[in-house]
Design a binder for these strands. Structure first.
Ligand SMILES: NC(=O)c1ccc[n+]([C@@H]2O[C@H](COP(=O)([O-])OP(=O)(O)OC[C@H]3O[C@@H](n4cnc5c(N)ncnc54)[C@H](O)[C@@H]3O)[C@@H](O)[C@H]2O)c1
Ligand SMILES: NC(=O)c1ccc[n+]([C@@H]2O[C@H](COP(=O)([O-])OP(=O)(O)OC[C@H]3O[C@@H](n4cnc5c(N)ncnc54)[C@H](O)[C@@H]3O)[C@@H](O)[C@H]2O)c1
Lengths: 233, 233
DNA sequence: AGGCTTTTGTGAACGTGTGCACAAAGCTGA
DNA sequence: TCAGCTTTGTGCACACGTTCACAAAAGCCT
């Protein structure tokens, strides 16, 4: 379940505040989900709440941590130490949850060798060896989009089966390899879409809900005239 | 539809390569989705393909751009110019799709005044004015988690109705405000979860699929002894 | 000790998204 | 002009996730 990390975060906060137990209602509110959904999720991991009382916070934290595999540490390698790679390398939020930045790598020999966040950036030549020696299990790709697939292939060849991709590309991977992507532009575009909807309904039907296609002849052919050249490159 | 940006990206790539038309099958492969799904998605926006030929790339790019509201530009403000805020400010991928970084803001007076990516970082005091004058419609929150809700409230009060949140918190917002979150730790935890599943099935049932709760007496009470203190803070 | 209150765990209905499969539509070439 | 081929658009069935609602369980108070 993809919501477990959310619950875990809310529970950790409660735990820090010394709260001993929590009801599904409270926890659901903190995580921003429906309480029935939360209870069903928790029941999946065979968890035990106490009727009339709620869930024991500490116990639940432990259970979810174990279910997510957070009781062991996961060495992470970051590939492509540019703007974003820098930020991630300097980010302290990883270590607190069992993730350890084991290596930073870059193809640029001017970047390799630099010290960032207390680590020396390694060159891509050493990738396979680093993965092997440090038992890296998760690769984070922060290279430019054109390089992402190549890097991905090398990571997979080196034995990595979990990849977090920040480059705006669809990565092709063999079966058994998990890829998750974080895509800024897509998030912004979705926001823009909703924003447009809002202003459209506010200001009346300037844009019809369903855009009528160019009538008559065809959707193809000579349309050079009526297409403003506003489309993004 | 949250997949439109994906299609748009694939289409833009095709457009740059001069490809005039594309079949649903090809486009679906490029976007990593099912072809029937893609056709259904496109049919929602009343789009016109040509049977026996496929879709006109340029026309589709225009249609999707318009549907997503990408024919206008969206001024974006980034709040919290630390590691991540820096990276985003320096990122060139926004402008290419109609998003314009209109302002960088920070609460730290040592940060405000700095030039980053050709812009001067403004102080939070000016937030309301900047939002008003520059017609900022999307706010990006890259402050530490504890500050996020406060910043969010101010953005909403200033009239912003679309927020992209990088801080690991659930933001409470009034109806009509859209929040999308990008959460690194959650992505990593999901990867770790699957990774653990994989190694568990490989190496036999070291961890049972369903974790049996502590038997007998209760799930509560004296459990100080059998809980290893490995849970993340 | 027994009833009352609180809260879990879950059965069942519902809505949504997904994918198959096929008929209709349009192009191409003879 | 017409047959044949390709590809779209969509009806339909299915699977999944979500939510409601309620009975059973546990604690608490008298
Ligand atoms: N910076 C952001 O805020 C941001 C936001 C969203 C998405 N992205 C995406 O993240 C990726 C990185 O962005 P960035 O701004 O950090 O770019 P960048 O150009 O600053 O950094 C890219 C780094 O990758 C290295 N690199 C290039 N090819 C490589 C290869 N084959 N192997 C290893 N390393 C290689 C380069 O040497 C460079 O250091 C891009 O795909 C970008 O689209 C960035
Ligand atoms: N750096 C990363 O790679 C990364 C990754 C995932 C998530 N995050 C999250 O993104 C957020 C920012 O991370 P970071 O590494 O850039 O942190 P950072 O500490 O480097 O930067 C935070 C910035 O926000 C400013 N700030 C603090 N309170 C503010 C307020 N009330 N109003 C306006 N500005 C304020 C600070 O002055 C600072 O410049 C954090 O919530 C972090 O958890 C960061």
């Amino acid at each position: 379940m993809a919501r477990l990390p959310l619950y875990l975060r809310a529970l950790s906060a409660l735990s820090e505040r010394g709260v001993p137990t929590v009801s599904s209602e409270e926890l659901a509110a903190a995580a921003g989900v429906n309480s029935a959904k939360l209870r069903k999720d928790l029941s999946y991991l065979g968890s035990y709440g106490t009727r009339g009382v709620g869930y024991d916070v500490e116990y639940l934290v432990y259970q979810i941590s174990r279910e997510l595999g957070l009781t062991q540490d996961w060495p992470v390698a970051i590939i492509g130490i540019g703007n974003l790679g820098h930020a991630l390398a300097n980010y302290g939020g990883f270590a607190s949850r069992g993730f350890r930045v084991a290596a930073l790598l870059d193809a640029d020999r001017a970047v390799a060798g630099q010290r960032i966040a207390g680590m020396v950036v390694r060159h891509m030549d050493d990738l396979e060896q680093i993965v092997r020696d440090d038992r890296v299990s998760i690769g984070v790709i922060t290279t430019p989009a054109p390089a992402a697939q190549g890097v991905c292939d090398r990571l997979v060849a080196a034995g990595i089966t979990s990849i977090l991709n920040f480059a705006p590309t669809v990565l092709a991977v063999p079966e058994g390899v998990d890829v998750r992507k974080v895509d800024l532009s897509i998030e912004l575009q979705i926001l823009a879409f909703h924003e447009q909807r809002k202003s459209a309904t506010d200001a009346g039907p300037t844009l019809p809900p369903t855009a009528p296609p160019p009538a008559g002849t065809a959707a193809r052919g000579d349309r050079g005239g009526d297409l403003p050249e506003v489309m993004p490159a």
